[in-house]
Every structure is written in C-alpha cells, then in structure tokens.
Design a protein around this nucleic acid. Structure first.
Lengths: 215, 215
DNA sequence: GTCTATACGGCGATAGAC
DNA sequence: GTCTATCGCCGTATAGAC
C-alpha cells in the first residue's frame, strides 16, 4: 500500500484521467479511449478494473467523497467546540462548510480541483443531481442545516432548505470555474481566484440566510 | 408565417424536442436520432434544416434568447422609471432580473421550462459556460450590474461581480430543477415550486449584495 | 492477479442520390 | 424535402501473455 508519494498505480492513473475528463465534458462527452489514452494504458484495462463506464464514473466520485465529508465534518466539530455554548454563528458554519475548498489551495494536487468541478457538474445535472448528490452528501448537509437551524432560532424550515439550495448553487458555479466571470468583468474578477471567491461568499450567504430566516 | 397557435412547423418541432433533450442530457448525451424520433420526423431533416449537431444546439439557444433579454430589459426599464430619482433598490433590481421566470408560470408552454434548464446546463458547463453565456447574455447582465452599482454606491466593483456570480449560480441551480431539494428536505421544499424558489431568492440575494458591498 | 491484442455488433453523424 | 448508404468509432467481451 503506497503510503506517501509512491508511484501511482495504473488504476489510480485511470481514475485521475477520468476525473479530469468527466469534469470537463460530462459523462457522455468522454470516450473510454480518451481516458485510457490520457492515462497511458490500454482501453481494456479500464473495463478490467472498473467494469462498465458508469461504474467508473461512480468510482471517481467515490474516491474523494469520504475525505471531503470527513474534512467538513471535522471543521464543523471544531467550530461547534470553539463556540460559546456550542452555538457558532452563521458565518462560522458557512466557513466550515467551505473548509474543504482550502484543500485546493496549498495542494499541488490538481485532482481536487477537477473533483470539485465534477461535483459541480453532477449537482446541476438533471440526470445525476438528485440521486448521486443525495447518495454521497445528504448526511453531511443535514448536519450543516441542523447547525444553521440552531444559529437561526426563528428560522422557518422551508426557508432554511431554500437557503441551502442557493448556497449550493453559488458554490458549485464557483467550483465549476468556467471562466465566465473573467470575461464578464473584463478580468477584474477571476473565477480561478478561489480565495476571493470563498472570502466574499461567507458574508454574502450568511446575510442571505439571516434575511430569509428572520421573523 | 404562423401568427398565433397555428400548427407548428416541423422545424419548430425539431427545436422543441432538441430543447428538452439537450436540457436533460447535455449536448453529448443526446443522439440526433432521439431528437428526430421525439419530433416525429426523419433524421435527415434535422441536418437539412440546421446542419451539424452543434449548429442545432446554437439554434435552440438562440430561439428564446432574444425574448428573454427583451423581457429582462423591459422589466429593468420599468423598475427604473418607477423608482424615485430613477434609482431602484437592490430588491427591485433582483426582482426585475428574475422577471422572465414568471413566464414559466402562467404559461402552458413547457418549452420555457426546458429552455431555462438548458441555460442552467450551459452556465455550469466548462465547455460552453464562458463563450456561450457571454455571447447571449453579457449585454443584459452588464445593464443589471450597472443598476446594482448605482443602488450600492459604496460597492467595490470586484465584489459586485462576485455577487452577480453567486446570484447566477443560485438561479441556475434553481432553474435546473434537479429534484435534489425535495429529497434533501424530505419533500418540505420542492424544487419545482418556482414561485417559492424565486420569492425567497430576492431577499436572500439582496441581503448578500448589501453585505459585501457595504464599506 | 494484471494487463494486452484483437474483435465485434451496433449505432453515431453526415452527405449524396433522388 | 426525403431515403438510403457510408464510414468510423463506440463500449464491451474474450483469449491468452506476463
């Protein structure tokens, strides 16, 4: 078992290539031959390791989902533990929810950036959005909504869910990193500037939650 | 030329079918044969009317883009005209930006619902997000950002663009209507309930803009 | 257990004959 | 406008080499 930067197995190389290509072109926009070519392996090896194409797609999603959930869960634990009477502010909760995005900075691994773009694709997809997102992320999202409910005592539950929906949309468009923001703003705002994207997002979303959850 | 509900031309039937299928499965997820089958015409007729597949995709986007831009532009004009000293509030501007969504209610035409889902797909796509969205919507978006700048005098321009980015993400996920919100909330919030989705969105986004544009 | 060479049945978009 | 042909490539299966 490769502990640290041991040379990657071919199985991992396939996952890396699939991750990047699925994120950029979607499930149907990628041919298995393109993936195998990018990974430098034979086409048949993909089928050997993962079976049909759809199973490869799931394997890609699966690989980092657990890590992602753990990072978020830990961040939420910490912010609850640090808060007076265990009730962190809305800002602190949103900050914890965005914590995994810090991985993308500071890490030389491009894989996470591709993975987030893939999640953005999945989240907005009518084909996969409901089932796949629910399968991997519902438990952790529910934890965050519980924390938000606690921080906003007068919140109407329906408004809370809509608020999360807006947060989810804003976040995934940012993760998709399409470059449109750059074009629109003539380079003033850069969609690749994740740090700024997330920094502005915390007060923006927190204020939104307060606005619709006040009574 | 069919003025009102004259029977649809086969060209329009093809556009209708393509609109729905592209919205649901993305560009690569749809076969021309599926489109022609759904439209009840021969495959070759698609190529005859529109040329290659990509041109059909553009034709679908094009068809309603002008109407959409006009509706938004008119709504903005009205809200500027109605406002004291021509300076509408942030809420009023967001409301105008969401105006076209009213089309989807009150209209029996399912086409608009499919079109909005298609725009959601395009907006989040790394392949099309930058160029296609800019091509069709940059002018109108710039008008709205100008209005927002006017409503938020202390606004930093970069923050303004990020704010629009979050609005865009929240809106397109709502338009994508993936049904995830229903699953997540156990049916308490319904992603098909566009009226509620947009009603909450106005105060949510307006508060967000105020928060990051205050000094 | 890992991997490669090869093959195959099917269907993709498109163009040319009519 | 329509019908038919074409050519290439798609995902997948398998037999067998390391």
């Amino acid at each position: 078992m490769p502990r640290k930067s041991a040379k990657k197995s071919r199985k991992e190389l396939i996952l890396d290539a699939a991750e990047e290509l699925f994120a950029e072109h979607g499930f149907d926009g990628v041919k298995l031959r393109t993936i195998s070519g990018a990974a430098g392996v034979d086409v048949a090896l993909v089928n050997y390791h993962f079976g049909p194409k759809r199973d490869l797609f799931d394997a890609v999603l699966n690989r980092r989902a657990e890590v992602l959930n753990q990072v978020r869960s830990d961040a939420l634990d910490v912010c609850i533990a640090d808060a007076p009477n265990g009730a962190p502010s809305v800002e602190e909760i949103i900050h914890a929810y965005l914590a995994p995005m810090g991985i993308v900075q500071g890490s030389a691994d491009e894989g996470w950036r591709h993975y987030f773009a893939l999640v953005a694709y999945v989240n907005n997809s009518p084909e996969f959005g409901r089932d796949v997102m629910s399968q991997y992320f519902n438990p952790i999202v529910t934890r965050f909504i519980d924390a938000l409910r606690n921080a906003l005592p007068q919140a109407d539950d329906e408004a809370l869910y809509w608020g999360y929906h807006y947060l989810s949309g804003a976040l995934t468009l940012t993760m998709a990193d399409t470059g449109r923001l750059d074009t629109l703003s003539n380079g003033l705002a850069k969609s690749s500037d994740v740090e700024k994207g997330y920094a502005h997002m915390i007060p923006f979303i927190a204020a939104g939650f307060r606005a619709i959850c006040a009574r």
